[in-house]
């Protein structure tokens, strides 16, 4: 899948720490120009950004240390889509970078002993339930009116969307089901198109 016309979507995967390699692999399978990003400069001009799973404390410290916060916020402010998975969901929440009006609860499902796999109904990707891998996963504890819940498990929201930000508590990159990444790319394609229309109308 590529943008309707023009070069392949340029998608950055934050590689400060965590499961970035599998996201890159999946995005490349979908023909995106996927790349690891570790510095603010590498975040410029991306069609989409992925904040992967990992340890949210470690990733947040790296974001602060490397001055990545403003660059990530600028990416979202200009309407470019972002996918946060697991720790990436926590990084997006209102107690961290504040990219979504929701509070994630860390390790909500427990330790590794409580990690699990499930078939999950996921709104907006069509068809079969998604294979969801939860690893020491968070859930959304509370959220504002602008947040759309796309999937829940045992009454807890585990996938949400607000504007151009998509966050899920599980790991689509660890499976062969690429629909969440395809959704991100569809969002990136339409963001690119509306940016282009904005330019032409000016």
């Amino acid at each position: 899948m590529t943008a309707a016309d023009g070069p392949p979507l340029r998608i950055g995967v934050l590689a400060s720490q965590g499961g970035f390699a599998r996201h890159v692999r999946m995005l490349r399978r979908l023909h995106a120009d996927a790349r690891e990003v570790r510095s603010p400069a590498e975040l410029e001009g991306l069609d989409a950004l992925v904040v992967p799973g990992g340890e949210s404390t470690t990733i947040m410290k790296a974001i602060e240390r490397d001055g990545l916060g403003p660059a990530i916020c600028a990416h979202v402010e200009r309407g470019a889509p972002l996918l946060g998975t697991c720790a990436g969901m926590i990084v997006c929440d209102s107690e961290h970078l504040g990219l979504i009006d929701a509070v994630a609860r860390r390790n909500a499902f427990g330790r590794q002993a409580q990690s699990f796999e499930a078939q999950l109904d996921f709104e907006g990707i069509g068809g079969e339930p998604i294979e969801a891998v939860f690893i020491r996963a968070p859930w959304i504890e509370s959220y504002g009116p602008g947040v759309e819940v796309l999937a829940s498990w045992e009454g807890h929201p585990v996938a949400v969307r607000e504007g151009s930000v998509l966050a899920c508590a599980f790991h689509p990159e660890l499976t062969d089901d690429h629909r969440v990444h395809a959704l991100l790319m569809a969002m990136a394609t339409s963001a690119r198109e509306s940016a282009r229309e904005g330019e032409t109308s000016r």
């Binding site: 590689a15 965590g18 599998r22 590794q112 990690s115 699990f116 796999e117 690893i135 790991h171």
Partner: peptide
């Protein structure tokens, strides 16, 4: 036993870390 994917999955999340 927990699936191999859950086991290696946690190690995937530790990558790039100490």
């Amino acid at each position: 036993p927990a699936s191999f994917r859950l086991k290696t999955g946690l190690a995937e999340m530790l990558k790039g870390g100490v």
